[in-house]
């Protein structure tokens, strides 16, 4: 399986990562090698085998809906990189 530098850049974009030309050159053969290794799963007949997403068979775990205190505003904003003390500030999302 050959993952080209273009594929690397496209996947990086999907994952919100900016990769440099240099990184893309390094990552392309590495990702190719890893995905090629994973190709061995194609050898096995997996028809009608159900997928396992989780080793415990718990479904729709519910708890009683009882309100409890969450973080205070101050606690919630404590780790925010940029805030005005009331809300988190981010670069403009809409062009105005």
């Amino acid at each position: 399986m050959n993952i080209t530098e273009d594929v690397v850049k496209n996947v990086a974009k999907l994952a919100r990562l900016a990769v440099s030309e240099e990184d893309a050159q390094k990552l392309a053969p590495e990702l190719s090698e890893i995905i090629s290794y994973a190709q061995q799963l194609q050898e096995v007949d997996l028809t009608d085998v159900p997928p396992t997403s989780h080793s415990l068979s718990l479904v729709n775990v519910m708890r009683p809906d009882i309100p409890s205190a969450g973080l205070t505003r101050e606690e919630a904003l404590k780790n925010a990189p940029d805030s005005d003390g009331a809300e988190i500030r981010v670069p403009a999302v809409l062009d105005v």
Partner: peptide, 27 residues
């Protein structure tokens, strides 16, 4: 970054059945 990219690739449209689904079946 490498692992985020492998994961993003394995889950992306067109590759999901070939990689992620097969891996879950093998599991």
């Amino acid at each position: 970054k490498r692992r985020i990219m492998i994961g993003t690739y394995a889950l992306s449209s067109g590759y999901y059945d070939a990689y992620y689904l097969r891996a879950q079946q093998m599991r």
